[in-house]
Design a protein around this nucleic acid. Structure first.
Lengths: 396, 396
DNA sequence: CTCACTTTGTCCTGAGACAGGAGAAAGTCG
DNA sequence: CGACTTTCTCCTGTCTCAGGACAAAGTGAG
């Protein structure tokens, strides 16, 4: 199938495409209500978009009391690839132009094997999805990587947990391989974009999205746009000091948040608790598998294990301490908690809430919701699709 | 003298006015080089600006190898009032349209006396400045207050150190009183705008401006624009926890940064040191005046007093700890330190730098300057003038 | 001083953006 | 069936804007 190569010719067209993406198929008249353009101008721009094939006519809409309107929708054949590379697994999904997920794969993976091996696996997964019939090709791809990215070039920079990736031209290489435009960003930023597009943050302009996976990061959204910082490392809160002169951290400092919480620290603490005999539940699980992960702690906690609950609460309290500081500083309208450890659920959330509401200024917390992300593993890939969609739907 | 009431009619005119403000008087040709407009269109817009009186012709520019160009400058009679209300003193200044300070007054004042008394004093100072001949009236005024502000309405909200101000319609009241447009913002945000306009942050898009006065606050600039947060309290870092379960703070929590540093805490600590006999220098000063202030500590430190130096270093280290976290989170391109205690100078700066460079991620600090503000007490009033100027120089 | 050349400013024209009215097309409802 | 509503298309007039032609004003070599 021929891929879309057209791009909107001006800001009006870009605006229309985004309205159709975010609001679904829509009638010309309804589009007119949402955009500040005269009917005549609107008709011209829509006609041009129809010519390029970016949108298609789609029958008649229901009557609003008069002549029925012609429906318009984004090209139904348009397909986006969303890739979310984590530390230990990778998600690949295919969406249509409205960013609805048509197919989604998750596989274990080790990011430390380097970009070449990882992208071989990603391309293989993409091929599988294509073979399953949800796509014949891709019009664009968004890639999330677990580390800082020089955004304009799409190149990871000095990523602590993926040393082999430093400077690898992800954007260029994948664009070549897939034959379509590619954008690269930090996985946490993409999660924030996902929750903003289709999740809890839909109507919020300024918010924080804290992702607690193997490590801990934070997506920052300012005025509806992701803020990436001067060198692309904004939101790297895992190495903020949570305890002066505290535990040594892999980064070389002491007392970092990630030394106390996050998937890696939690697993380590759980194994220690199992060996010390503090938790029969965790010890039994350790016996079974030989090692523990955050999911085991979650399971033990929901089975009522007091030690597991304590571990979660302590981690949540530490995380809450750091978030409390960020809330005072940033005064967000919403805080979203997501990532692999959301399985820890409301115990974690409660600990974080308690700490933030106790420590931050009343004016900043007065009307501040702190909630779990509602998209789960779909947040990253949705955000990735959204990233490339924003790129494709901007004037050439 | 008749005040300017005109406003730019469109974005081009606004752009031209800002170019003239930030770059000084300029020839038509040079303006053409900086703005993406054809010569004909440019001529039309400049002619319209000349008609409204917002700009005036100002003789001929030097030749650039051909016909000499006509110089254009902002209306020379335009006068802006910049007011920076602190906790214990107030600055009032008059600037021209290029935001150059033509007259500047500083007086002690107690913000707790409430808005009515304070504005009486401010208006009196403004009248003095007018009487001194630098202005015959004001075309606009910017006001900075030491607390959070609901920016669109120009109303302080729940300000901890100025309880009587909560909800007082500063913007409306002063606009009435002065008979010109007024904008109100947090004093820290105005300091950031001042340093951005005429100080160290001229070419930086994303930076933090930490103001250490009686309290401690932080101006946040994202993409060249001040970020104010959802309820206007962004940057309120004085009550971020610097020490878990630490000293009690006036806010009701424990371990806040302001419990350890800032003008109030520093004075308290200095008095304690003087009474305990830890510092003969400070004790002598206490004897003289009966109480100590941050300036006394600065004086003692520059006289070589070890205890004073220790106080500054400890405060700087604590502040540096908090800033380190913010740097990891925000990844700014610059950190500016300013406010009343900049008299503490390089001892303070060194302590902050040491802590930030040690604790933040290398990628975030790699190329991060941490510097003292270069405008001193002029930063606030310059920022205030800039605030109202941005308002006046935007399309009506 | 003259002449070739450069820069600046003004005038004019034509292309395109755009709003809003007229009116046809297509529907609802009593 | 007729009055009314909504949608869509076509047309016209206004405004924006770029760029060319040309005049005005200056530079510098000879």
């Amino acid at each position: 199938m021929r891929r879309m190569t057209a791009r909107p010719a001006n800001a009006h067209q870009a605006r229309l495409l985004r309205l159709l993406r975010d609001g679904g198929p829509n009638s010309r008249a309804q589009l007119g209500d949402q955009i500040d353009l005269s009917r005549s101008k609107l008709a011209v721009e829509i006609d041009r978009l129809l010519e390029t094939g970016l949108v298609v006519a789609d029958g008649l809409a229901a009557s609003r009391g008069g002549r029925r309107s012609h429906n318009i929708r984004l090209a139904p054949g348009l397909r986006l690839l969303g890739v979310d590379i984590g530390a230990t697994s990778v998600d690949v999904a295919v969406t249509n132009a409205e960013l609805e997920i048509l197919g989604h794969l998750n596989q274990p993976m080790d990011v430390r094997e380097g970009p070449v091996a990882v992208f071989e696996q990603v391309l293989d997964m993409a091929a599988k999805l294509r073979a399953s019939g949800v796509a014949e090709g891709f019009d664009g791809a968004g890639i999330g990587v677990p580390g800082p990215v020089r955004f304009p070039e799409g190149v990871p920079v000095a990523p602590p947990i993926m040393p082999g990736w430093d400077g690898f031209p992800v954007r260029e290489a994948l664009s070549q391989e897939l034959g379509c435009p590619v954008m690269v960003d930090n996985d946490v930023n993409l999660m924030a974009m996902g929750e903003q597009h289709a999740g809890v943050a839909r109507s919020v302009k300024d918010f924080l999205c804290v992702k607690i996976g193997t490590g801990i990061g934070c997506g920052i959204v300012v005025g509806g746009e992701v803020y990436r910082g001067t060198t692309g490392s904004a939101g790297d809160i895992g190495h903020i000091q949570a305890e002066p002169d505290g535990r040594p951290c892999a980064c070389g400092n002491h007392g970092c948040l990630e030394a106390y919480f996050g998937g890696a620290a939690l697993a380590r603490d759980a194994e220690a608790a199992a060996r010390d005999g503090r938790s029969a539940e965790l010890a039994a699980r350790l016996e079974e598998v030989g090692s523990l992960a955050a999911t085991d702690v979650a399971a033990a906690a929901s089975a009522g294990d007091a030690t597991a609950l304590d571990l979660i609460r302590e981690g949540g309290t530490r995380t809450g301490q750091v978030i409390a500081g960020l809330v005072s500083f940033f005064n967000p309208g919403l805080v979203v908690i997501g990532g692999g450890v959301t399985g820890l659920g409301h115990t974690l959330l409660a600990a974080i809430r308690t700490q933030v509401y106790r420590q931050s200024l009343p004016l900043a917390t007065g009307n501040l919701p702190i909630v779990l992300g509602e998209l789960g593993p779909a947040a990253g890939v949705t955000g990735a699709a959204r990233l490339i969609s924003d790129h494709l739907f901007s004037p050439a």
